[in-house]
Design a protein around this nucleic acid. Sequence first.
DNA 1: TATATAGATGGTCAAAGATAGTCAGGAGCA
DNA 2: TGCTCCTGACTATCTTTGACCATCTATATA
Lengths: 153, 153
Amino acid sequence: MARLSDVIEEFIKEMIKETGGEAEIQRNALATHFKCVPSQINYVIGTRFTNEHGYFVESKLGGGGHIKIRRIAITKPYNNFMHLVVSIGGSISEQAAAAHINNFVDYKLISYRDGILMKAAICNKALASSITDNRDSIRAGILKNMLLRLIVV
Amino acid sequence: MARLSDVIEEFIKEMIKETGGEAEIQRNALATHFKCVPSQINYVIGTRFTNEHGYFVESKLGGGGHIKIRRIAITKPYNNFMHLVVSIGGSISEQAAAAHINNFVDYKLISYRDGILMKAAICNKALASSITDNRDSIRAGILKNMLLRLIVV
DNA sequence: TATATAGATGGTCAAAGATAGTCAGGAGCA
DNA sequence: TGCTCCTGACTATCTTTGACCATCTATATA
């Protein structure tokens, strides 16, 4: 007996395949369809459609809201982004983040200007109003999201 | 299910395009046309045609009243970056920040790719590990720092 | 002419409705 | 027993609606 979460996972993957890389779902509708609580959809997404699994998820709340799940391109040079995204984990220092960004610039995975913007976004000065204990994890979130955004299909 | 507000937004934008920069509408007539209450027109304007989005709205009450929506013309990039940096203050919502960025892209002050990166840096998802109460001020810090860095370049 | 009144607009705001997100804990299985 | 799956209460955000308010024009009236 297949677990419901696996069924939902397959359903979404099928959708992505059919639509060529992107599935847009409505949480409540999908939950009704599979006769489960809405939050199970979040569970499925949170355990099977993470960045590490190669997906990029966006959503919109409120009336007419939706969840959009997209496949990340893992082609040649950009798999380095994915490696970094996975290795960052939940936290990264300014120095380490800047070093990675400089590396990407050196290897021409991103432009000099991209690098400027990325470093501007993750430096301590930009994050000054965050709580110190939290700063490295916020930085990790920003860096990951910028890298992933560049390689979503 | 497409949101009615989005449909109305597109309708108004189309009007602006066709008339070369300015749409003059009648609130009640438009509401009747879209089968909604008049105040929804205000909602659409208030959420999608603000100054931050690059629009200027005037209206006239009473008999023969109307609402006039115009695209604001922007010319000098550095002035606008500086102006925005000053006007952001200590806090900005995701919506407002994204509106500004989209506006800069529209007026070609920054590239489409710059916009993608900047929006990736300031969105709620990227800042998920920050405390909710602090998020808008962190976002302001990031946006300001990116804009300032672009001025220096 | 000056003023009052009615009608026609648009503005504001708060409540209700529609989604999705989070998190702690229970349920089930290896 | 420990991991994964499932549930539901609570939260955050966005949209739609309607009651009440402010302003302008036209017209009737003194």
